[in-house]
Design a protein around this nucleic acid. Sequence first.
DNA 1: ATAATATTTGTAATCGTTTACAATTTATTT
DNA 2: AAATAAATTGTAAACGATTACAAATATTAT
Lengths: 329, 329
Amino acid sequence: MAQIKDVAKQAGVSVASVSRVMAGHAGVSEATRQRVLDAVQALDYRPDLAARRLRSRRTDTIGLIVSDIRNPFFTEISRAVEDVAYQHRMRVILCNADEDPEKEALYLDLMRDENVSGVILSPTLPTLVRFRSSDYPFPVVLVDRCDRDTAADAVVLDNVDSAYRLTAHLIERGYRRIAFIYGVTSATGRQRHEGYVTAMATHGLETLAKGVPATVEAARAAASELARSRPLPDALAASNGLILLGLTEALREAKLRFPQPIALAGFDDLPWTRLVEPGITVIAQPTYDLGQAAIDLLLQRIAHPAQSVRRVVMRGELIERGSSAKRGG
Amino acid sequence: MAQIKDVAKQAGVSVASVSRVMAGHAGVSEATRQRVLDAVQALDYRPDLAARRLRSRRTDTIGLIVSDIRNPFFTEISRAVEDVAYQHRMRVILCNADEDPEKEALYLDLMRDENVSGVILSPTLPTLVRFRSSDYPFPVVLVDRCDRDTAADAVVLDNVDSAYRLTAHLIERGYRRIAFIYGVTSATGRQRHEGYVTAMATHGLETLAKGVPATVEAARAAASELARSRPLPDALAASNGLILLGLTEALREAKLRFPQPIALAGFDDLPWTRLVEPGITVIAQPTYDLGQAAIDLLLQRIAHPAQSVRRVVMRGELIERGSSAKRGG
DNA sequence: ATAATATTTGTAATCGTTTACAATTTATTT
DNA sequence: AAATAAATTGTAAACGATTACAAATATTAT
């Protein structure tokens, strides 16, 4: 493998000049620039990244810590982050923390070891409540999950409003006993719960909410229980895609069709929500955009460490389908 | 940040001893080992990875190049690879090549720049036919896609056999005009097509196969066309999950239910195949296991560069659901 | 033409480890 | 107890770039 000194020799210049050309720095004449470029080409020279990273103390790497890449929401986020990162010649280290605060801490430690330029984090609730940017030697952008008063760059959905609109939609369609099954351990679940509660209260209805661990199994169990309760709820709403899947499976098992005797709605416009007859009403999240906004924000922060803290809030879009058709209509 | 020399001073030993202890090398007395460990603890010393990588010429990083992480198949693969990699204190660089040979080449080049320890690759057809291990300065394990005569470590499904079994199942259920829609640009699509053709021929049936780009849209278009053709096929079979989704959407749109007037089956046991009434018959791939086997193989290869070339073939499992219920039964 | 300034170039130190090799200490054999 | 072998330790040279800083050259102003 050719090294920088080989290039320097070939081009008849010093290693400093080669380095400057490679880095695209100013202050090098067009003549030498061309000679260096020719030499680079001739020798097929590629700078050694390890050496560069050691000396320059920059890794051009960012960390992405999510609960599980298999969650389609995070799959899409990760794709967006990687797209933008590679466009900026940065690398991404992806970590699955499995909703486990200890793993989260472990991976954040790893980020320190890797000397990353920045981190995008979707924190568990315990990590979120304790979160202080100053605890980390790198900038952090929160994505998807964030408290009202967390002092950190963040990109999130308008969770409270979206849940409000979803609930109001069900009410408007004539449903009254609306049960809300939500992930109690997550910030988003709680915020969406808040939107649900507000909507129900505004319309003078009693709430019927059930917090569960955010897994398909837990949601299925909760829905099975609700399916056996009397009086039966009119409608079931889920705070995210995983839970919605659990509800759908449970209703199917209990042979309860929707919208009659029970309507169904939830978060996340996954491919199957369109396929399951007669289609499931959902709040669609602009997932790719959320990821893109997160990495954009992080890159900005890396470039300007002192800029003021930013929060990007994106709007969820209600997609009405058959599962919430007008009651008795 | 504490450096190795600080630790050495604190422990009253040389930097070499510290390095040896950190690397877990033999040939250091228990006494100094303990002193070093104490000093490390006291100073919260973490070795600088950039320096270590420069000097040792090892990055403990592996590359994973797939078409698109949003394909649930690759999502699962990537999760498996990351799980095992982190267990071995290795990092993963994930790349989405979007079925584009040029991007693939680009990313393989990037892997060289990163000086990775090895790569797991799911190649496009053009890359596969040209593939020679010796073209790369790192070991490569192919996953999902591999030719009969490619001389490289690989982990794949028994594509031909699985497609044969899926087709035979439809035949056994009484279907005769079975159309096979497959990804013509991929190695797996072609192999599965081969299994389909063999099964049809064995049973003295005429084939009705349609190769398409492996996208939901292309599959939908192909299925719409088939749905308008006369005589109508008895059954539609898809060579992968994306195509199966396209077929399902097209049938839905054409208001054709399954299994009557048209049966449906395909590859990949995605969550929605269970939910769409009356359930879709599929070949389930042991996806996580495939990923795990790939990284296991790669780690072995890294440890023993000269060991003989290995191929791991895993069996697909037929899951019978309502979409292929006995005809007229 | 000279001085002052701006631009371009080169030299050499530096980033923080690992590791070859030599030196030392400890254990074993005679 | 001396000689030999084995185990442990330390010294210093890498690894291959970047980047202060100084030196050289080119440009502009007087």
